[in-house]
Design a protein around this nucleic acid. Structure first.
Lengths: 146, 146
DNA sequence: ATTGCTGCAAAGCCTTTGCAGGCGG
DNA sequence: CCGCCTGCAAAGGCTTTGCAGCAAT
């Protein structure tokens, strides 16, 4: 049957996710993991993310065309994505519960999960963009956001 | 420079999008288009969707791992996705404006776009699932949703 | 006659899968 | 020892791109 094992790689991935202060995609995790375990493979990352997801330890979110992972949160929260630097932020949205029950009543739709995703510009990028009003540049070392 | 031309294929794609009563992905559009223009190619679909998007005529939404397209709506609305049959529905969410300005104030984040996506079960699927409590089946002819 | 558009095929991403060997329990 | 896990490489979806010919203006 399914007896999960504790391996170096598995614990490493879990640790990276726990300590992350931003949302990570599979490749971010891979890069961090190789620094401590150079032979780890990307498929191991994917397989363990998949496993953690099934166990409910990790949540997967898709913004645009990228998938991000984060440890399953204690409190419900939602996401802000910066259109310039691509970083993800979190915020709480107390009105979501009300929304769910309203949809339930008005549409007959039984709502299981609510995802509120806002896109805009984070404080740092607003500053940077207004300072250098030339626009259209990307932060070095950051994946470009189309 | 960029002088857009009107071609049979381009008009066809636009027409399909206008008349759709559900959200379509690139392949849905392709299938519908081939019925009227059998030689049309999938890359033409993608290139025109890309173009329409840039012109603001069409909106692209990503639910899970799939991308859906719809004509740019007059009124802001949000999306319900059925976890069983995969169909997308729309609803209005008047509280979104309030949410935007709250985030603006509290987080200093300048919000450009708000996407609220709810997942659950549509009325038809609720009925079908409770009737045949065996669960875990897919509607024939529907793409399977993992 | 330009030059944007199309179809085809090939390449690109990201993610998943098959396989043989290795390691945890 | 058993069998779950790993690394590697290959395969899979979906989307994008290069190219030569075609067609709209």
């Amino acid at each position: 049957m399914l007896n999960r094992r504790s391996t170096e790689q598995r614990e490493l991935i879990r640790e990276i996710l726990q300590q992350a202060d931003e949302h990570l995609d599979a490749d971010n995790i891979y890069e961090q993991a190789r620094q401590r375990s150079p032979n780890i493979s990307l498929s191991t990352i994917y397989r363990n993310l998949q496993l953690f997801k099934e166990l409910g330890l990790v949540e997967e979110h898709q913004f645009g065309s990228r998938r991000y992972y984060e440890p399953a949160p204690q409190t419900e929260h939602h996401h802000l994505v910066c259109l310039s630097c691509g970083r993800g932020f979190e915020f709480k949205c107390p009105s979501t519960e009300g929304l769910k029950s309203r949809i339930n009543k008005e549409e007959g739709f039984r709502v299981i999960a609510a995802e509120v995703c806002l896109a805009g510009y984070c404080p740092a990028c607003q500053e940077r963009l207004t300072a250098t009003a030339a626009g259209n540049r990307t932060i070095p070392g950051q994946k470009e956001v189309k």
